Amino acid sequence: MKAIYNEQVIAESDNTVVIEGNHYFPADSVKKEFLTASGTHTTCPWKGVASYYNVTVNGEMAADAAWYYPNPSPLAEGIKGRIAFWNGVAVIK
C-alpha cells in the first residue's frame, strides 16, 4: 500500500493493518519529513485517544491528514506504532 499526497509517496508498506476501512502503516514506513504535529485530538469509544499530524508536500498542507493512537485501548493494541491517512491523502495499492 502507498499513501500519496500532492504526487509524493509519503508512506509505503506491504504490512498495513486495516481497521474500519483505514490502512494503518508502520511508523517506520512513513516519511516523517512530510509530517508536523497538530494539536488536534479525538476520542474513539473503542480505540482511545487519537493524535494528528498535518501533511505538507511542496508547500501544500492537508490539515490533520494523518492520525495515530499513542496509547490505544487493549482492543486496538494492533495499531500501536502505526499511522493512518485521510483528508486528501490517497491510499492506494
Results as ranks from 00 to 15, higher is better:
1 M>R: 00
4 I>Y: 01
6 N>P: 06
9 V>E: 07
10 I>G: 03
11 A>W: 15
11 A>L: 12
12 E>C: 10
12 E>Y: 06
12 E>N: 12
14 D>I: 02
17 V>R: 05
17 V>D: 06
18 V>A: 11
23 H>M: 11
27 A>R: 14
28 D>V: 11
29 S>I: 04
30 V>Y: 06
30 V>C: 12
30 V>H: 13
30 V>M: 11
32 K>P: 00
35 L>H: 04
35 L>P: 08
37 A>K: 08
38 S>D: 08
40 T>Q: 10
42 T>F: 00
42 T>M: 03
45 P>G: 07
46 W>F: 13
46 W>V: 11
47 K>V: 08
48 G>A: 11
49 V>W: 08
50 A>Y: 01
51 S>Y: 00
54 N>A: 01
55 V>S: 05
56 T>P: 14
60 E>F: 06
61 M>F: 01
61 M>D: 00
62 A>K: 13
63 A>Q: 13
64 D>W: 00
67 W>I: 02
67 W>Q: 02
69 Y>C: 09
70 P>S: 04
70 P>Q: 02
71 N>R: 09
71 N>Y: 08
73 S>G: 12
75 L>T: 14
75 L>C: 03
78 G>C: 14
78 G>W: 08
78 G>V: 15
79 I>P: 05
79 I>E: 09
83 I>F: 15
83 I>L: 14
84 A>F: 04
85 F>V: 06
85 F>E: 08
86 W>P: 06
89 V>R: 03
89 V>Y: 01
92 I>V: 15
92 I>W: 10
93 K>R: 04
